[in-house]
Nucleic acid binder design. Structure first.
Lengths: 153, 153
DNA sequence: ACTGAAAACAGGCCTGA
DNA sequence: TCAGGCCTGTTTTCAGT
């Protein structure tokens, strides 16, 4: 867990909003010239703090704007079951997020699909591929109010 | 909702994984020369399908690896309350996702913070800023198993 | 010796034909 | 598709602290 000064944090904030920002602009924003700014970016990349730069798409325009959350309880807590479960779920491209949880339910995943029918297909594939699911409950998003990939740095 | 051919979809898939991929490589991957490939990218941007390019950071290395989900019920369903609630929650930088939900709970948000104590601070601020919350329940991620921003195109 | 500035170099982008 | 100009990233060298 690295130690960052306020210049690093400003750079990260800017890049989290727009990864295409040219080096000269970034340097300007933190009152540096390009070379020292570039060295900071390289260091942040090498340290693995800057993981990757990705394109974000519009789910509405792509017709994949239906979001569901699936919560799962299991009766099987063996390592083998866990490995199989994790690799099965992870391979679904519709599964955007997946967590082992504390509390009532053992696992939760966020699923992004076209519509309720597409969700049901995915759901049926899931329960067919994994055994020992004692309880599976789904909730649905009616309206997305915020979605950001920018961590609070 | 745009109509995309398989070349467009391949380009989107590649850019969702690595937005820094040079034009020449993208063109190569879809068996085009740079010019027609570049025109496709421009069109995808203009159509708003390619929304933005962002940097993704490592929450563990930044010490913000604690994920909580907060579910909320309200007794107040007026437009004014909704506006105030949404703007309040949206302004929290720790809130990464926020949905109006169908079912048992009216709203759900995903919160990303340093630790349980940071979560509790955020929680207290939230319930202090918003009235008429009849039920607020939090669940915690023990282990992230998958996180992707890449939509299944 | 370290940090930052400036200038030269290289490479990718974008637009004509 | 190709070729050219332009802009941006990258490297190196130099100066100041």
């Amino acid at each position: 867990m690295a130690v960052l000064d306020s210049v690093d944090r400003t750079l990260l904030r800017l890049l989290q909003n727009d990864a295409t920002m040219p080096l000269a602009e970034l340097a300007d924003a933190v009152n540096l010239t390009t070379t020292p700014c570039w060295k900071r970016l390289k260091r942040l990349e090498e340290d693995g703090i800057l993981r990757q730069r990705v394109a974000l798409l519009d789910p509405v325009k792509l017709g994949i704007a239906f979001t569901a959350f699936v919560q799962v309880k299991t009766s099987n807590h063996s390592q083998d079951w866990f490995n199989h479960f994790v690799s099965t779920v992870t391979e679904f491209p519709e599964v955007m997020e997946f967590y082992r949880m504390a509390g009532e339910y053992d696992y939760m995943m966020k699923v992004q699909v076209a519509d309720m029918q597409a969700f049901d297909n995915m759901y049926k594939k899931l329960v067919a591929s994994v055994s020992d699911l004692t309880n599976v409950t789904s909730t649905f998003a009616m309206e997305p109010l915020k979605y950001t990939t920018a961590l609070p740095v």
